[in-house]
């Protein structure tokens, strides 16, 4: 152990030496971090984009490509590459014939344990929600996380009515009802044993749709007015 150097026995160093050591290590660290960042970033971005795209295709059955739109402060849709910075993002999904399948909207709200982040798909032709996915939640495993796993609950979101009334607002706000008590097309059949979590999902969708759907529908009509006939109804298959 002759080469052991006991730091404690060193003479106290002057501040130049300390400064040299700290700056040296700092520069070395910065270099290492920058190099790794540059090396990994392309792949990280690609993976994140893939994950998001997968979620979008999940909630918009039939979609094979997507475009991102921003929603600006006045509540208007803007293209992604304009100079305005968007308040929130909306994703439009297109099928293989390049026809619009619908919009995927991200929303979040308080669940039982923490914030729940969800993504839902809106089909403006049918004025329905046609898909739903939980992006992030910390609900109790076995109870609250049924909102992600229970098929019976997820089936609520294949044709959930979010039709607009004459004033251009949501005619009936989406709400969660007790399990088995669903009567109307705009109601979500809840989960016994996960009452709070399933209600939270209803509230999140309810308030998000009230805000976003009228906007999306206006935008859709502007884009689609020339063609009047709704073409495909295969979206219900899944």
């Amino acid at each position: 152990m002759s080469e052991t150097v006991n730091i404690a026995s060193q003479n106290p160093a002057g501040s130049t030496k300390m400064l040299k050591a700290m700056v040296g290590i700092g520069v070395l660290s910065a270099l290492l971090i920058v190099v790794t960042f540059e090396l990994t970033q392309p792949r990280v971005q690609q993976l994140k984009a893939e994950a998001l795209e997968k979620a979008i295709f999940e909630v918009l059955p039939g979609a094979v490509s997507s475009r991102t739109f921003g929603v600006n402060a006045e509540g208007k849709l803007i293209a992604p590459d304009t100079e305005e910075s968007p308040v929130s993002l909306v994703y439009a999904g297109y099928d293989s014939a390049d026809q619009l399948v619908g919009y995927a909207v991200e929303a979040s709200g308080q669940g039982y344990a923490d914030k729940i982040r969800i993504l839902y798909g809106y089909n403006p032709k049918q004025q329905q929600i046609i898909g739903f996915q939980v992006l992030e939640s910390k609900e109790t495993p076995g109870l609250g996380d049924k909102i992600e796993k229970e098929q019976r609950f997820l089936d609520n979101f294949t044709a959930l009515d979010v039709g607009l009334n004459k004033e251009g607002n949501i005619a009936n706000k989406v709400t969660t009802v007790k399990q088995g008590a669903k009567v109307n097309a705009w109601e979500i059949d809840g989960i016994t044993g996960a009452t709070i979590s399933s209600r939270a999902v209803g509230d999140i969708i309810g308030s998000s749709t009230e805000e976003v759907i009228p906007l999306l529908f206006d935008n859709y009509k502007m884009m689609e007015t020339p063609k009047a006939n709704p073409k495909k109804n295969e979206n219900d298959d899944k």
Partner: peptide, 26 residues
């Protein structure tokens, strides 16, 4: 120097943690 050793260790450790963080993300 021994006066700044803990600070240097933390700096070194933090660097490698950041590197690991990026690597796991990738």
């Amino acid at each position: 120097p021994k006066q700044v050793r803990i600070a240097s260790y933390i700096l070194i450790i933090a660097t490698f943690v950041t590197v690991t963080d990026y690597a796991i993300q990738a």
